[in-house]
Nucleic acid binder design. Structure first.
Lengths: 336, 336
DNA sequence: GTCGGCAACGTAAACGATTAAGTTCATAAT
DNA sequence: ATTATGAACTTAATCGTTTACGTTGCCGAC
């Protein structure tokens, strides 16, 4: 392995000069810089990240806490696409991203320990509910961090504007004549609570309330659970005309359950999803749902994170970004 | 920031002892180890990854080269799930994984440079075609690496057994009476060539060959391209009874195009996908496709990589694992 | 001619850990 | 009693950079 010293010797300069040729533009003449870089290329020298970050205390490395797939095994398009956009933007800004593991070299390590260990410049958490509460305190104290779908005082967050989303969806459904809606919702995450709140408010503003017993829970992205929940709703005496699902995958599970029970969609029952996953618009019928702008969410998460990293001391209140999406009208809500 | 020295002073031992308390179990008594660890916990000390990997030259960190989403913007479930399984298994074995970016700290860096820079213990490449050819030579020379969906002499690879897959699919389609099939295939990747080869061989073994003009190309996961390709096939004078698509997403695009052209599926035209994405079995009709065992692929990729890392010197021929999947019969292939 | 200023480069001390080699000391073997 | 052994600990060099600070030499101002 070649070191900065080899290059220095080869060029008849000091190690400091070689270092400067790679990491700063001042205090070195253009010619020398070019000469050193050419020599490095020729010799096959590469700087060493470990040595560099040991000295500089930052690693050009962002930690990511996320589960690409749901506990039930369903991978989630939302998380994937947010991370993908986050990564692409990180790449554009010169950062790597690393997925944190709980155990390192055989020794179990908490996420908190892990962050400190790896010296991340910052961390992003997608759907923070999955992770230990300590990580959130860590975020506030020691680390620059941004959360997605989870807002915490003291650090920025990014998520879809739930109020707007359910205002628009409720509007759409109401306009089509629906007056009795049922809701299937997740009850394991904060974001699900927020959304449900917004949904209820949106309908309340139109003089409707979700009747008792017409709210059933199932986890995000759980097709089986959604089917089950759908049957629960169908078993009630007063049927709704439209069912809201926590996400598109659940909605698909619901559609299947409805069909199996002899209900056509949207003939006998309307359904509304959430997320706007790509496939939702090539199905037959196309899903009525709300498209989250996952790319913007991912990109902005990175930008906020970089902003935190670059100005760590500002005591200005942290931004909580609400990202606009759009209603995908689809074909699963009937005109009554 | 606390260092090993602080802990040493606190415990009245040398730094070497503290180090041993964390990284090795020999050369230190059990009592001392416990005492040091307790002190570290009490003081809030954490080891520093940069310092450690500077000295030990390995980082407990694996590089991943992959594109979570396709150039056309479609995220691919295959890549996501493979990486997810890879990451989960890495976590179980004490490794982090980091997504490589091309540019670091503003300076553009090739993937090769990046690997050297970060000191990865090994790297995994999913669908290597996307990346520069140099990375492949790097793989062979300096780095332990495993590829998915791409086999290279000199290092292990993992992929679905295409021969088996198309043998089984051809068998299924042939049994149902199909004698004229058309193929829509990707032509930008190595794996697509392999699969097409296997498909042709499987049908040749049954006395069928894919007629000239009945093979049209479209990129993986490209719904629009697949629709286009489908129309191209429909424009031929002798129609096939069944169309093979490169993947499930393309297949969906094809189904839409067929419907738009007045062909019912599978009434007027049968279609076959590939991948077995999770949604494929909740559609109406359920897709006839081949389920790739993405979890096993991801898991085994990591295991092979660890094997390479642990026994780097063995000149034994590298394993090229072919992973079995299964035909998902679905409902899109008619019985003729 | 002297001096200040500055660009460009060198010196050398860190950064926080690991580890080969050396030390100590109790115990076992002879 | 002497020596060998080995467990447990320490010493100190080292990993490859960065960077504060020191040095050099040139140029222009006075």
């Amino acid at each position: 392995m070649l070191t900065i010293r080899d290059v220095a010797r080869y060029c008849n300069v000091s190690t400091a000069t070689v270092s400067k040729a790679f990491s700063q533009e001042s205090d070195i003449s253009y010619e020398t810089m070019e000469r050193v870089r050419a020599a490095a290329r020729e010799l096959g020298y590469y700087p060493n990240a470990a040595a560099r970050s040991l000295k500089t205390r930052h690693a050009c490395n962002l930690g990511v806490l996320a589960q690409l797939s749901h506990p039930n095994g369903i991978y989630t398009e939302f998380v994937t696409r947010v991370i993908n956009a986050f990564q692409a933007e990180a790449e554009r800004n010169g950062y790597d991203i690393t997925f944190m593991s709980k155990s390192l070299s055989g020794k179990t390590m908490s996420y908190e320990e892990h962050c400190l260990y790896r010296n991340f410049d910052g961390i992003a958490m997608i759907c923070a509910d999955f992770f230990s509460p300590q990580i959130l305190t860590l975020l506030q104290k020691d680390f620059q961090g941004v959360t997605v779908d989870y807002a915490e005082e003291g650090h920025p967050s990014v998520m879809t504007d739930s109020r707007q989303a359910y205002h628009d969806l409720a509007d759409f459904v109401y306009q089509r004549g629906h007056r009795r809606v049922a809701v299937i919702r997740d009850n394991t995450t904060v974001i699900a609570n927020v959304r449900h709140q917004c949904l209820c408010e949106a309908f309340a503003a139109r003089g409707l309330e979700i009747p008792e017993g017409q709210t059933v829970t199932c986890m995000f992205n759980d097709m089986v659970g959604a089917a089950q929940a759908t049957r629960t709703i169908l078993a009630q005496d007063k049927l709704p005309t439209c069912i809201f699902y926590p996400d598109d995958i659940a909605c698909l599970g619901g559609i299947n359950a409805l069909r199996d029970s002899g209900y056509s969609v949207p003939g006998d029952m309307s359904v509304v999803g959430f997320d706007g996953i790509q496939i939702s618009q090539v199905l037959n019928p196309r899903l009525t749902t709300y498209r989250q702008d996952m790319e913007t969410i991912g990109r902005n998460t990175l930008r906020l994170l970089l902003n935190e990293i670059d100005n760590p001391d500002t005591d200005s209140p942290k931004q909580h970004q609400l990202i606009a999406g759009e209603v995908l009208m689809g074909e699963t809500v009937a005109q009554l």
